[in-house]
Structure formats: C-alpha cells, structure tokens
Amino acid sequence: MKFEKIESKIAVLPVDNIDTDQIIPARYLKSISKDGLGEGLFRDWRLNSDGTPKADFVLNKPEAKGAEILVTGDNFGCGSSREHAPWALVQSGIRAVISTSFADIFKGNALKNQLLPVVVPADAHAELLKSPWAVVKIDLSAQTVTLPSGRLVEFPIDSFAKQCLLEGVDELGYMLQQDAAIAAFEAKRVGSVDTLR
C-alpha cells in the first residue's frame, strides 16, 4: 500500500502524554488477530460504563465523521509497546496524528502501519489546537503541513521510513534480501559471542 496525501478536517484532543493504555486498554489485547480493534480505541474515554457514548469526547461529536487527522498534546503514545494502538487508530479511519512529540516505540509502530506521526513546532501546534474541525493538508512527499491559516510548516521524518511509506516498500522483504550478510555475521560469532547455543 502506498501513502497518499491527506486532506482532512482535524479532530483535536488537547491532552499531553496520552498513553497506549488510553488508546486501547489492555483488555482488548487478548485477540490473536488484528481484527476488530477499532472497537477498543479510546474505549474508556469514549464510552460510559454502560456502553453509551460520552457526548463530550471529541471522536463522538458529529463533526468527527470522516476526520482522518488527530491533533494531540505532547508525547503521544507513551507507555507500552502494543502495536494494537496504531492498529486501532487506523481501523478507526485515522491516517495521521499531529503532535509536538511522540514516544519512540509508538512512532516506529505507527510508521509500519501507514499511520503518519507528524511533529510540528509549538506555534503551529498552538494554531491547530485552536482550530478544531478546520481542514489541514499533509503532503508526505514535500514533508509539509498546510495549516488552517494557509501557512506551510515542514515536518521531519526519517528518510527510509518516508521512502517505505511513499513507495509501499515491504520492510521485511528488504531485510530478507540481506540474508547473506546476516549469515556471514553469524558465522563469525559461532563459539564466541554466541553463548546461548
């Protein structure tokens, strides 16, 4: 799958340090497949204990329909390594998250699932926080976000991850191609470093 440009209204969730237990609680991790995880997305922020939706939660608002971009506070995705977090976001139609920073493991997991973590400077972030439901454009190839005011800001992304997203590179396939180098590396270490054999 190749990553295309995104043009979408933004859903704004102005909370710092949103951890993966909030994105998808542990009780949804018993699945042995990737199916149906969208149901667990922000489960305890989204629904009351009787299963009815909390009207004031951003993704429950009528405007949220069709929003593909989530804007959040600092350090999004901290906590556990569960890839169920990006799986749940993607299954719920989110294609990019914009923040001032992301936790390392979440960022890596997101990039492997066509979910774009976009880091913007504080002033651009402040503008986005003030503009819920405004339309924002993200151009991965140019590495730019077009803010609601029309201003363009650049965002950083690892060049390899960018290439993988744009060209739909299969990372595992790329690694498997390096089999000879791996075998040579292993051969050097037999009987010395390889203590677990």
Binding site: R82, I105, G108, K112, N113, E171, L172, M175, L176, I182
Partner: peptide, 12 residues
Amino acid sequence: IGTSQVGHVFAT
C-alpha cells in the same frame, strides 16, 4: 519493540 518488529526478528 512492536509486533511488526517481532516478526522481523523472527524471520531475520
């Protein structure tokens, strides 16, 4: 690591 990477380590 995430589950995709678990797969990478399994295979390579």
